[in-house]
């Protein structure tokens, strides 16, 4: 396999993991703009564990997920008191603080960056990404998926139906952060050098964009979103800046035309042939102006 192809596939795998880190909170209705901070926590803690304690990379990366998830659990109490746009801003501030703290942590190199001795290649990264994706898919095939969607759609009714809204919000936030931490760990151990500047707000935004683009309603959305926007520019072989321009333009158009993302739940059911021929009333309903959702 050429180095170029491996590089692209590694990037794809890491982006897919990041995308699922953004998907979990978004599925519960939270816009987490601090994902880069949790990815940084994962990257630095796994690098530290493998550099200093000589842990095997994959174990260090697993611990990275636990560390990032634990930090998320701790900050969840104050941060998840806020909601909507305030939550997005609070997580954004959180990400900035993490970045600023790492820039001042001399033990991991501070602003100069932190080299990572251990190195993992595509097979290990792809395997980890597959495990992450499979776990999220499995999780969403359980009652957890229904409950999280219910919390996203209507908190009041979800609560009255006996769903502990708060617990599911915290769980989605912490699990998403843990996954972002794993993504950060993978990144650190493949690119062998990390610097805090990489884990900035643009990374958080890009991750969120992958997910919203693919769609937050089904577990397939993030995979598709990350894949399209990692591979498409490679296929087009455009320069880095044109890639961003195309990415942004495509996003604006997509958000305007398909605000729920590329794949929606209803569409998926239709696509997989699960839905019966639409019931006769549907024609009437379709003729009526569609109510905006959310």
């Amino acid at each position: 396999m050429s180095g170029y192809l491996e590089g692209v596939l590694v990037l794809l795998a890491v982006n897919v993991v990041f995308a699922y880190g953004g998907f979990l909170p978004l599925a519960a209705g939270q816009l987490n703009l601090g994902l880069a901070g949790f990815a940084a926590i994962g990257a630095y803690s796994s690098a530290y564990l493998s550099n200093v304690f000589k842990l095997p990379p994959l174990i260090a990366i697993a611990f990275a997920g636990i560390v990032a998830g634990a930090v998320a659990l701790i900050v969840a109490a104050p941060v998840l008191r806020t909601r909507g746009i305030y939550l997005a801003l609070a997580t954004f501030a959180l990400g900035q603080i993490v970045q600023a703290i790492i820039l001042n942590l001399e033990v991991v190199g501070g602003a100069a960056g932190y080299p990572v001795a251990a190195f993992i290649r595509l097979p290990a990264i792809a395997a980890t990404a597959t495990v992450v994706v499979a776990l999220v898919w499995l999780l969403f095939a359980t009652r957890f998926g229904i409950a999280v969607t219910a919390v996203h759609d209507d908190e009041t009714v979800a609560d009255l139906m006996g769903i502990d809204v708060r617990a599911f919000q915290v769980a989605a936030f912490a699990l998403g952060s843990a996954i972002a931490g794993v993504g950060g760990g993978l990144y650190a151990h493949h690119f062998s050098f990390i610097e805090a500047q990489y884990f900035n707000i643009s990374l958080s935004i890009t991750i969120v964009l992958y997910v919203l683009l693919g769609g937050t309603q089904t577990v397939f959305g993030p995979l598709l979103g990350a894949a399209v926007f990692t591979l498409l520019p490679e296929v087009l072989r455009a320069s880095a800046n044109w890639r961003y321009v195309a990415f942004a333009a495509a996003l604006i158009v997509l958000m305007a035309l398909r605000p729920e993302g590329l794949v929606t739940g209803a569409q998926l059911r239709r696509l997989l042939g699960l839905a019966r021929a639409q019931p006769r009333h549907a024609e009437v309903a379709a003729a009526l102006p569609k109510e905006p959702s959310g």
Binding site: G265, A266, R269, L274, A275, R276, Q278, P279, H281, A282, V284, A285, A286, K290, E291, S293
Partner: peptide, 10 residues
């Protein structure tokens, strides 16, 4: 209506 999206139902 088992698999229908509820928003489209009468």
């Amino acid at each position: 209506y088992e698999r229908s999206t509820v928003g489209n139902l009468p």
